[in-house]
Design a protein around this nucleic acid. Structure first.
Lengths: 147, 147
DNA sequence: CACGCAATGTAGCATATGCTACGGATGAAG
DNA sequence: CTTCATCCGTAGCATATGCTACATTGCGTG
């Protein structure tokens, strides 16, 4: 899942372009985090999580969800069987908790900046996947000193 | 370029899932912003911007750059001819300046939080595309009051 | 217990982004 | 003006994410 084999240009140019490279490489991981978070929340709220629950949550078709769920199952994050609910593996659960925590910190941080609730919720969704540990720590510090 | 024709599920479910829907819908725009910014900077630094400059900058192959440049040209953001340098249209220039300004604010904001330079540069790349006007304004406020 | 609707899966297509391999264009150097 | 390294375009493939249309499963109901 990591890479293939070759690589001609990029290794040498890492210095200059590491930020962008990282940004792009993270997309699959972002999807994984969004999905395990959603499964976690849905199970908490409704007792079980179905393909259609996720389809509604992400506003995509059930087909898209199905395929992604299949991939995440192969990655060991989810468990499911045909026509059965979706559950998190231990690994998926760990990722979900980590993601939710990070999400929560970003959300609270935006709120502490004075951003309105709705905007903060929207922006935190987009931002959470791009916040490094160092920046997250800085946000935590800010939350502590301002409270 | 906006959409095709159909749309069954998403319109109705916007209420619940607007944050996610927005996040996903923005990817093409993010690429556009990254590219016009890079063209702008490269022209400033080197006098002209070539496909290979962008390929090195983003650490992707020249093929990927070529295709994206073609798309952005069709969108009226860039101008170029085969084997010729890439330039920004007026529209592209406006977008570049807006993006750079936003980028700059996010970067300065992260630095003001105490995030180190290198991390701030990396994170601001990822974050800038997910920051709403409201949040950007909050960051500006923060920068003013803390300085 | 058969039936039908809702949920899910499958087939097949589109777009966006990656790549390698190969071939054509440009321009500098001889 | 030829030559050649470098740049760039095209062909063709892969993956990730979207979709519609159609097939199938499961389960509640009559």
């Amino acid at each position: 899942m990591t890479k293939k084999t070759p690589k001609t240009t990029s290794k040498k140019s890492k210095e200059r372009s590491e930020p962008h490279a990282r940004t792009r490489a993270a997309h699959a991981q972002e999807t994984a985090e969004d999905y395990v978070e959603a499964v976690f929340d849905t199970v908490q709220e409704k007792g079980e999580c179905r393909v259609l629950d996720l389809a509604r949550h992400f506003a995509v078709s059930h087909v898209t969800v199905s395929r992604i769920v299949g991939r995440l199952k192969q990655e060991g994050l989810l468990e499911t069987a045909p026509y059965r609910p979706i559950t998190l593996t231990a690994k998926g659960n760990r990722l979900a908790k980590r993601s939710k925590k990070r999400h929560q910190i970003v959300l609270e941080f935006l709120l502490s900046l004075g951003v309105d609730q709705k905007t903060a919720e929207i922006d935190s969704e987009g931002i959470e996947h791009h916040v490094s540990e160092a920046t997250l720590a800085a946000m935590k510090r800010h939350l502590k000193t301002r409270h």
